[in-house]
Design a protein around this nucleic acid. Structure first.
Lengths: 393, 393
DNA sequence: ATGACTAACTTTAGTCCCGAAGGAAGTGCC
DNA sequence: GGCACTTCCTTCGGGACTAAAGTTAGTCAT
């Protein structure tokens, strides 16, 4: 069923290589649903530009052996920044997803000049001091763009206007501010959605077109991946799982309502519960109660979204053994029968994960067919295409 | 941002005309994001086939007047059938959405030969007795296909395997059975999803690409429209809103769990509550409690999906004045601040609505770019394209 | 080795759609 | 009427992708 997809095929080829490891031309044609002829053409161009390379020859099983193609990791890199209320984490990632370097700085998001401070942090990374630039081979790789993950709703990636109550940001045009001050495309997105993109590119999501990413930590969030791409909703607010009403008459939430999931199982809620019980840290009882609510919420989400898999991430997963006893039974008890088989996996987590997600926004752009990234996405693509071998038209 | 869409552009043109009334060629080009040149080409072909016609000339406002194009309603028709536990409702609908005729028959879905009985009901409609065939001009219009809406999950429209506990159907290959016995393409789909398609084609959904359809009646359901098309989930089960856990420790549901929305606010639950209170019919108190739960559930859905609008449908809406007092305050109390503006509209409802939704499955097929309808969709398209003017290739 | 077979590519002729430029059909002003 | 102006539509050359038919490079039996 040939469904042409415009100039995006070139990006799709990069996507296939970026997400599914080395592939032969025929593999690519098959996975993209594109004709082998087209792949030949496009690969010819990509080889000339130095974006892909012939990696090895897969031994034949009775036919001409396949030539495996791979992305040239050093052909580009991206910066990813995760903005939290009190700090900023940044990573520098190669095109193939390998982390080159990471940083973390204290940051006061509430400050009036927070956007300018963010620029101050990022600018040196985009324009390294000329002297030490040559110290690393990869440093020569062009920066394709900067991804910024924020804990809030972003109206669209093009405009980059952020509503993030926990950062004290209200309709802040972060995208425009950063773009004006930094010499690279900037993509701003909700932090959980960014994680979902990363998961789709490099994680379990590679094998699934419909899945959910759920995070626990300071807040509670969800990323909805629908037909292979992240669903942003009408106003970029899809996946606001933190304000799922799970507890009638529950505690008041920062959003003003009562009974929100986040108000009961967010980090702050757990600490408050511990404090009220006269403890230093949440104990098993507190975690069990939180796990019970979280399990019910996730079950509701699974029932209504019918995903192939659910991936649990976030700082909270470090204490997962405490969550599990409450979570598992509650989840199973509220899943409808036909959803019982949906795997809910908890993945490992480290401090750079959020920032890596933000970087994935940029690295996924060449592969993005939905056009959600708008003009900035075009810029990223242009940098990737033009930077190495110049204009080969 | 030109994104070619393959041979589907022809379908997209029909879609635009079918959903947005008469349009000029330029209008079509604009709404589809396609070049005027392409529209000219395609329209030329469609005119030759008799699928569209030049309707009138829109007076100019200082330029060449636009020639408005419209669908030729009599170019095709579709049957839509809604299967319920105790009856089947069927409609015969023209290409432009106008209902030609409707029927309703008692039906025992639990019977072992239910699929055969359904065939018996539908066959005469597809193969009308030759004598009276000429009585109606439209009867000459080819039947493009038969849409069947069922209250359950359908794995995919191509296979048409149905899981519908309320009908006693478990992995019933309804699609295959009907296709083997009826001389027309058959599309089987969840009834609420079918309604969502109809709403997208003919209702409020015309102006929205992201919205929710929520139904109340015997059961509770939801249809999720994401980026313009109905999201079916991994196993066709997306939108199973009836098993949203809203009431910890609530009544036991037919699915085996407790606290499901449907177990508290479905028709049966309301009648039982009335009976337990010694009443003939649910009173204000019962409706208020149900409305409260329903409002909370809908709020959760809105918070997590971020739709542009929510449309409430189903038999239950006939008694909406009883639901509202419980529903409205609960909904507003649980919506997060940035969702307060999302309109929740209750639409009028009549007995043919479900069946009309099923018919919309077929009528939307020519417009469907997602490929969800598979081979049957191709057949529908072939009938539409080939039937009138023959093969013009 | 020599062919039979298989699978991975490549070439070729053709289709679909686009951008750019131009023709067509009106209004409004002199 | 004549001329500018606006908007709608069409024609034309070109790029992207395809299907179908080759070509290449291996394995496997004889």
């Amino acid at each position: 069923m040939p469904v042409p997809r415009g100039d995006l095929t070139r990006s799709a080829v990069l996507a296939a290589l970026g997400t599914s490891g080395p592939l032969s031309r025929t593999d690519i044609a098959r996975t993209l649903g594109v004709s082998p002829a087209t792949v030949t053409q496009i690969v010819k161009d990509l080889l000339a530009r130095g974006l892909v390379a012939e990696v090895e020859h897969r031994p034949s099983r009775g036919g001409r052996p396949a030539v495996l193609l791979g992305l040239v990791g050093s052909a580009g890199r991206a910066l990813g920044a995760k903005v939290a209320a009190d700090h900023v984490a940044v990573v520098d990632v190669r095109l193939d997803g390998q982390v080159r370097q990471s940083w973390e700085w204290p940051f006061d998001a509430m400050a009036a000049d927070a956007p300018d401070r963010l620029v101050d942090l990022l600018r040196p990374l985009v324009e390294p001091a000329g002297d030490e630039a040559a110290s690393d081979d990869d440093a020569a790789a062009p920066i394709l763009g900067i991804g910024v993950g924020v804990p809030g709703a972003v109206d669209d990636q093009e405009a980059g206007a952020v509503d993030a109550p926990t950062l004290g940001w209200r309709r802040l045009a972060l995208g425009a501010r950063l773009r004006a001050a930094l010499p690279a495309p900037v993509l701003v997105e909700n932090d959980v959605n960014a994680l979902a993109v990363a998961e789709r590119l490099y994680g379990r999501g590679r094998e699934h077109r419909n899945f959910l990413v759920v995070t626990i930590g300071r807040g509670v969030g969800a990323g909805l991946v629908v037909d292979g791409s992240v669903y942003r909703g009408a106003g970029g607010g899809a996946g606001e799982f933190g304000h799922f009403p799970v507890q009638p008459g529950g505690p008041r939430c920062s959003c003003g309502n009562t009974g929100c999931l986040e108000a009961s199982v967010g980090q702050e809620a757990l600490l408050r519960a511990a404090h009220e019980a006269g403890l230093d840290a949440p104990d098993a009882t507190i975690f069990a109660a939180a796990g019970e609510l979280f399990g019910r919420g996730v079950a509701g989400l699974i029932n209504v979204m019918d995903p192939e898999i659910v991936i649990v991430l976030g700082e909270g997963t470090r204490a997962w053994e405490h969550w599990r006893p409450g979570f598992e039974p509650s989840l199973r008890a509220h899943l409808m029968p036909s959803r019982r088989g949906v795997p809910v996996v908890v993945e490992s987590w480290d401090d750079t994960s959020w920032a890596l997600g933000a970087a994935a926004l940029v690295l996924a752009t060449p592969y993005d067919a939905s056009g959600a990234t708008g003009g900035q996405g075009e810029l990223v693509r242009a940098r990737l295409g033009g930077a190495l071998a110049g204009d080969l038209s």
